[in-house]
Amino acid sequence: MKILVPVKRVVDYNVKIRVKPDGSGVELANVKMSMNPFDEISVEEALRLKEAGKAEEVVIVSIGPAKAEETIRTALAMGADRGILIETDETVEPLAVAKLLKGVVEAEAPGLVIVGKQAIDDDSNQTGQMLAALLGWGQATFASKLELGADKATVTREVDGGLQTIDVKLPAIVTTDLRLNEPRYASLPNIMKAKKKPLDKKAPADFGVDVAPRLKVLKTEEPGGRKAGIKVKSVAELVDKLKNEAGVL
């Protein structure tokens, strides 16, 4: 079986986000970028399945600028076999990502696609579900445990009431949650080997997909500062303040 893992280049989760002075978006110049944490978990799970003999090949795909090659090389250093970069400087929205991934899936014919449940930059949580709909495949979202059988995937997923275990017929789409695993670090020898692993470059036009944004950002603002709390002497005073000052009751 071949496993396909999409990865996204995002601002590193340790970096404090700053809004541009003109309010057109967040500042990306001279900011450390890295692989989306949920995608790291997806890569790790695919590698564990390969090491367990459940898959023969792990293919990484990323959509973004030329520098996204670094993100793919990170996954290759972790142990993935090869990568595909769909190069574009546009801000690609989830639907366009799903359409591009559909083209990659049709070309690569994987038995399983493991997707991070969301990216930490836009938090859309849509790509995996949209890809499943476009392909007509089964899907299991928010996976905290994944087991592969001969023709199905058994997924334990986190829901509001606790845990739910479902079976999904392969081929399928699985989106990963934080508690699925802890990603490994790439060793220095593997980082050097990753530079020689195959990486194909393509363009959105190769898949017949228009990636022009459909949404327009009107303004981006920093969240307001948190006000200091106060102590109240009774429940009645608390209710009065919530009703008459905060206006939440």
Rank of each mutant, 00 (worst) to 15 (best):
Ser62Lys: 10
Thr154Cys: 04
Ile72Leu: 11
Glu44Thr: 00
Val58Cys: 08
Leu100Gly: 04
Lys152Asn: 09
Pro110His: 13
Leu101Asp: 04
Ala75His: 07
Ile86Glu: 08
Ala80Phe: 14
Gly53Pro: 01
Ala150Glu: 15
Gln139Tyr: 00
Arg73Pro: 05
Gly162His: 11
Ser144Val: 15
Leu95Ala: 08
Glu106Ala: 11
Ala132Pro: 02
Thr156Asn: 10
Thr91Trp: 14
Lys117Trp: 14
Glu87Asn: 02
Gly128Phe: 04
Ser62Thr: 15
Ala143Asp: 13
Val104Tyr: 07
Lys54Cys: 05
Asp160Met: 05
Glu93His: 06
Ala52Glu: 15
Gly161Ser: 15
Glu93Met: 01
Arg48Asp: 09
Gly136Asn: 06
Ala66Gln: 15
Asp123Cys: 03
Gln126Lys: 12
Gly128Cys: 00
Gln118Trp: 14
Pro65Ala: 12
Lys50Gly: 10
Ala77Asp: 06
Ile72Ala: 06
Val59Asp: 02
Leu112Ile: 05
Leu134Pro: 01
Gly138Cys: 10
Thr71Met: 06
Asp89Ile: 01
Leu85Gln: 07
Leu131Asn: 05
Thr127Tyr: 11
Lys99Met: 14
Ile84Val: 15
Glu147Cys: 07
Lys145Trp: 03
Glu158Asp: 07
Ala98Asn: 08
Ala96Cys: 06
Pro65His: 11
Met130Thr: 08
Glu93Asn: 02
Ala153Gln: 07
Val43Arg: 03
Leu100Trp: 13
Asp121Pro: 00
Ala68Ser: 14
Lys102Thr: 13
Ala55Asn: 02
Lys50Cys: 09
Ala132Ile: 02
Gly162Leu: 00
Glu90Asn: 01
Ile63His: 06
Gly111Ile: 10
Val104Gln: 05
Ala140Asn: 07
Lys50Gln: 12
Thr156Trp: 01
Gly128Arg: 00
Lys117Asp: 13
Ala52Gln: 15
Glu93Ala: 04
Leu135Met: 14
Lys67Thr: 13
Val159Glu: 12
Thr88Leu: 08
Val104Leu: 05
Pro110Lys: 04
Gly64Val: 11
Asn125Trp: 11
Leu148Gly: 00
Ile84Cys: 01
Thr71Arg: 04
Val97Trp: 07
Gly136His: 01
Glu147Tyr: 08
Leu134Trp: 09
Lys145Phe: 07
Ile120Asn: 02
Val115Leu: 01
Ala75Asp: 09
Glu108Ser: 01
Thr91Tyr: 11
Ile60Thr: 05
Ile86Gly: 04
Lys54Met: 08
Ile60Cys: 05
Leu112Lys: 03
Pro110Leu: 14
Asp89Lys: 09
Leu101Phe: 05
Arg157Cys: 03
Asp89His: 07
Thr154Leu: 11
Pro94Tyr: 14
Arg48Phe: 04
Ala153Val: 08
Ala52Thr: 00
Ser124His: 13
Lys102Arg: 15
Val155Trp: 11
Leu146His: 09
Glu45His: 07
Leu95Trp: 06
Phe142Leu: 14
Asp123Met: 09
Glu147Met: 13
Leu95Gln: 02
Gly161Met: 10
Asp160Thr: 05
Ile84Arg: 06
Ile120Trp: 12
Asp123Ser: 02
Ile84Gly: 03
Asp160Arg: 10
Ala107Gly: 02
Lys54Leu: 12
Lys152Trp: 10
Val43Asn: 03
Thr141Tyr: 07
Gly53Cys: 13
